[in-house]
Design a protein around this nucleic acid. Structure first.
Length: 264
DNA sequence: ATGGTAGACCATCTA
């Protein structure tokens, strides 16, 4: 089973790239962020034509998340139930697997804009609400994967130039603590369970030739519950789509779960 | 210190 996440920064612009990517990477679930389109503009047919189903929470202009899946999802949940928020940042669905139900969540965590701004306070509040919801969700669904754009580089090794970024949004200590508070629930950062190349990033600013200079951050993550982590055999970043014409500023992250040994 | 680019949308906002 393969699970992936990709912040595509406008599904309208990136739809052809997403379809191409799925053809080349037929994952079981692809979590998308920053759809930037309202519910009624979601291109469902484009996905059904290639054998996928979809659940989404759209919004005009900003935000918006989706989970593209091979099978039909059940128990679909939009947004954080106990956090009143018009920004569409969460969609959750339950997939069938040889191990039983697996909860898959696509998350677009707030950016925070700048330290001390209203948006930064909102980001920290939102993470608290996310943590609280995830605690309950893990009780209901021990096999849980939450994938998305967390807008947090967890450690200095996830930052191209840590000195330049000290105290900045996306790397500040309160944000890293917020991210760490999710790990305290028993979630693990799948990417760091494996040997990885140094300077592995998932996002590069469009400006100043950041991709060419590999001036990036690792802010897109796959978090796996304790029940799922033992089955994860790989977690990789696919940098290829950043070289496309009109690329997203983020690239996909893919986690592989292998249940064969457990079922043998 | 500012601005650089991209996307949504036609003046800025968000990232």
């Amino acid at each position: 089973m393969k699970l992936a996440t990709w912040n595509i920064n406008s599904l309208k612009v990136r739809l052809p790239q997403v379809l191409d990517w799925l053809a080349a990477n037929p994952v079981d679930a692809l979590c998308l962020q920053e759809l930037k389109l309202p519910d009624e503009k979601f291109p469902l047919e484009a996905f059904t034509e290639i054998g996928y189903q979809a659940n989404w929470a759209g919004q005009k202009t900003y935000n918006g998340v989706a989970v593209i899946t091979r099978g039909a999802g059940t128990d679909v949940q939009r947004n954080l139930p106990a956090y009143d928020d018009h920004q569409q940042r969460i969609i959750a669905t339950t997939l069938d697997s040889p191990m039983g139900d697996i909860r898959v969540i696509s998350a677009y965590c707030p950016n925070g804009q700048s330290i001390g701004s209203d948006k930064y306070e909102y980001k920290l509040e939102w993470f608290k609400a996310l943590r609280s919801w995830l605690r309950d969700e893990l009780q209901r669904y021990p096999r849980l994967a939450i994938l998305g754009d967390y807008n947090v580089a967890p450690k200095d090794e996830d930052v191209h130039d840590p000195l330049k970024w000290i105290g900045d949004v996306l790397v500040s200590e309160p944000e890293r603590e917020a991210f760490g508070s999710l790990l305290e629930l028993g979630l693990s950062d799948a990417f760091r369970q494996f040997e990885q190349e140094e300077k592995s990033f998932t996002w590069w600013d469009y400006r100043r030739y950041a991709f060419r200079r590999n001036a990036g951050l690792r802010i897109d993550h796959v978090l796996l519950s304790q029940a799922l982590q033992p089955y994860c055999t790989a977690c990789v970043i696919d940098k290829a789509p950043r070289a496309n014409e009109q690329p997203s500023d983020h690239v996909p992250v893919i986690a592989t779960l292998d249940f064969a040994a457990a079922l043998a």
